Amino acid sequence: MAAPSAPVPSRRSSSKVLRDSDLAGVGPPVSAGARPLRRARARTGAARPARGSGGSGAGLAWRRFFRHIVASALYFENWQLAIDSQIPRRADLESTPVQHFWSLSVEEQFYLVWPLLLIAAFAVAARAGVGGRRTAFALLALVSAASFAHSVLLTGVDANLAYFGTFARTWEFGVGGLLALVPLPRHPRSDPVLAAAGFVGIALIAVPIASFRSPELFPGLVVLLPVAGTALVIAGGMPTARWAPTRLAALGPVQWLGDVSYSLYLWHWPVFMFVPYVTGMPSPPWAMVLLVLLSLAVAGLSKRCIEDPFRAGRGAVAARPRLALGGVATAVAIVVGAGVAAPAIAAERITACEAPGR
């Protein structure tokens, strides 16, 4: 399952809004750009084929897949999963190829509301004759504090709703927005402090990854560690101190992984869940290693053949139409294959295993 969204996106969104406001002079800007206990079963190692008899099982799986594909395309996958968690017959939250898009849905919902709040804050500030940046900071701090309190309280009541709920996750993006509103010192004397902040941030991100073993407590207070760690890494920037983490971040493999990270996010879950659906059993460790390597390969090809040409403009796509078309065709084939062939194969295996005499 995809990791909780980091505060990086909201920092970029907030920075753009503030930049537009500064360019306009005064007034509001005019342009702006979770693991609960029951969901532990939906992890890659526990992905299960659809139960039922033959084609009917595959048909039910496909209908469930289609429902989540639509939810992901319209950016409400998080709420679809939250609703499923409240329905007893769907409470197991079995995996779908697009289940990981829940975090992207939360992010886009934040993008829809946060710029409007910033515009309103700048409008109020302009009328009141107070600083727009201070008003925006106060507004975002208030919203983030309310969201954090809501997340902690809701986690104790229903970890599923807290994990997928938009408002329970808003504060994580809010931290990034607050970071964009705070001027950070950038001079040689601050390099040791910034370097230390970077290392502390990396540690705060790594510790919960290695030690977290209580999914029923997530998100809640536990999310403070990775969110604070991400904020520290961003605040630390790229200091020039000799012992700073800058050299680590500048390594070729690290740069490449960061470059393909979004493509890897898009592709890793369909790749991971394909084998369990085909075989009807959890992937062994050696298979997971191969799937990780396959995910990295697919992510690299996807970025080179699909993402980069489209980002560069029509000219780049037109210059390499066969390569772009081949990349798109490969991507579609993998998704369709995982969504259609795998459930049918798994259903046949279950039917054979449950047949009399077996």
Results as ranks from 00 to 15, higher is better:
residue 270 P to C: 09
residue 30 V to C: 03
residue 168 A to D: 13
residue 187 H to P: 01
residue 171 W to L: 06
residue 301 L to K: 11
residue 95 S to Y: 02
residue 25 G to D: 00
residue 152 V to E: 05
residue 234 I to R: 07
residue 127 R to S: 10
residue 291 L to M: 14
residue 336 V to W: 06
residue 117 L to S: 06
residue 296 L to M: 14
residue 173 F to M: 13
residue 196 A to L: 11
residue 340 V to F: 14
residue 194 L to K: 13
residue 167 F to P: 03
residue 316 A to I: 09
residue 35 R to L: 15
residue 112 L to Q: 08
residue 259 D to C: 06
residue 76 F to E: 00
residue 92 D to P: 00
residue 319 A to K: 10
residue 229 G to H: 12
residue 291 L to A: 10
residue 142 L to P: 00
residue 316 A to V: 06
residue 238 M to W: 12
residue 275 V to S: 02
residue 351 T to K: 06
residue 198 G to C: 04
residue 127 R to L: 07
residue 18 L to A: 08
residue 197 A to S: 13
residue 211 S to K: 12
residue 120 A to E: 03
residue 294 L to K: 11
residue 142 L to A: 15
residue 166 T to K: 00
residue 98 V to P: 00
residue 249 A to L: 15
residue 303 K to R: 15
residue 213 R to I: 07
residue 299 A to T: 03
residue 108 E to A: 03
residue 117 L to R: 00
residue 212 F to Q: 11
residue 50 A to D: 07
residue 183 P to N: 02
residue 25 G to M: 01
residue 282 P to R: 03
residue 333 A to F: 07
residue 203 A to Y: 08
residue 308 D to S: 13
residue 91 A to S: 13
residue 298 V to A: 10
residue 102 W to S: 00
residue 43 R to F: 13
residue 258 G to H: 03
residue 135 T to C: 05
residue 242 R to G: 12
residue 116 L to A: 10
residue 79 W to H: 01
residue 257 L to K: 11
residue 26 V to L: 08
residue 128 A to R: 12
residue 241 A to T: 04
residue 220 G to T: 02
residue 54 G to R: 15
residue 100 H to T: 08
residue 338 A to H: 08
residue 7 P to F: 05
residue 325 L to V: 11
residue 280 G to S: 08
residue 331 A to C: 09
residue 119 I to S: 09
residue 218 F to T: 03
residue 349 R to A: 13
residue 82 A to F: 01
residue 304 R to K: 15
residue 223 V to G: 00
residue 185 P to S: 05
residue 149 A to L: 12
residue 149 A to R: 04
residue 220 G to F: 01
residue 36 P to K: 05
residue 2 A to R: 12
residue 329 A to I: 05
residue 215 P to N: 05
residue 85 S to N: 03
residue 265 Y to C: 11
residue 36 P to E: 06
residue 324 A to Q: 01
residue 350 I to P: 01
residue 294 L to Q: 12
residue 73 A to Q: 00
residue 66 F to A: 15
residue 111 Y to G: 08
residue 160 N to D: 14
residue 85 S to D: 05
residue 326 G to F: 01
residue 152 V to W: 09
residue 261 S to H: 13
residue 322 R to D: 07
residue 29 P to F: 02
residue 6 A to S: 15
residue 315 G to E: 15
residue 29 P to Q: 04
residue 217 L to N: 09
residue 59 G to S: 06
residue 334 I to K: 05
residue 198 G to N: 02
residue 106 V to T: 12
residue 227 V to D: 08
residue 308 D to E: 11
